[in-house]
Design a protein around this nucleic acid. Structure first.
Lengths: 146, 146
DNA sequence: AGCATTTGATTAACACGTTAACAAAGTGCG
DNA sequence: CGCACTTTGTTAACGTGTTAATCAAATGCT
């Protein structure tokens, strides 16, 4: 399926390598999420709420790696699907508190095992040491200044 | 600017780590490209054409890591900007041959040094060995079967 | 040759990424 | 208090990601 690409400089560049790697990882995950009826980003939002409890949109955006304008749309969508609810913060009326509904948490519960097994298989296939080393390098790269 | 996130399991997951790393890498590159007046994807298409010469959309899509529907729109845009031209393949009239114009190649030439220096700085900051190791791991991950 | 299948490319529809502009609520300071 | 500034969240506009449907040209098979 993945054809052999010759070897122009772009093949070895970090941006392209990151792009292709993420494409490879998301393949099977997207299959799972399509069955669950949510997008990758909606899944991330629900997971953050499930793992860390109710929180405001700005915090969700940081944790789910989304920009606020995207999150605004995603929250509208999740709300219309009945997967989250919102209420205004009483002390700061600009701020909202988003909460996952039982149905929203249900989607996480119903798919978490599959998600974990997909990632476990990747870790195993790549080699556990190499996998963990990869993550460490990615985190280091992310945390570089400037 | 980048806030400290506590440490939920998602922080260590491969999909999120890849996402954050790519975000970090693309930051400075997007700045450069905004000045050049092209998007990241348009830049990739022009680079492929500049490095490998005229080719058909399907091949461009593979090399630039784009899906064909996206590429169709991008080629329309690049054509309207005068950065590429298209002609039909004479032997297979479904196929087109896309060629970068002098102006298109000019954009690459005008920004290639900046691009290289951004990536060199990242490599230096991460450590050359670790950088190269990271790319090797990403390539291995990408090439896993299944 | 005739017809089903495959391939190359496009279009459509929906969702997200990104930047800029904006509105409303809160904060700081004279 | 009053006003400038900041913060939170939204909307707008444009471009891309993704899947499905579609069309024309080519290919394979009988």
């Amino acid at each position: 399926m993945a054809s052999k690409i010759k070897n122009p400089s772009t093949t070895k560049s970090l941006p392209i390598a990151l792009l292709r790697a993420r494409e490879r990882v998301m393949w099977p995950i997207r299959d799972m999420l399509a069955n669950a009826g949510v997008t990758e980003q909606q899944w991330r939002v629900l997971r953050v709420l499930d793992e860390e409890g109710p929180m405001d949109p700005t915090s969700i955006a940081e944790r789910a790696v989304l920009l606020l304008p995207s999150l605004t749309r995603i929250l509208h969508k999740l709300e219309s699907k009945g997967l989250i609810t919102r209420k205004r913060d009483t002390t700061d009326r600009r701020r909202q508190i988003i909460t996952a509904t039982a149905e929203g948490r249900g989607i996480i519960a119903a798919n978490m095992d599959t998600s974990r097994s997909i990632l476990s298989k990747l870790r195993e296939d790549l080699g556990e040491e190499r996998h963990d080393q990869l993550i460490a390098l990615l985190v280091d790269l992310t945390e570089l200044e400037d």
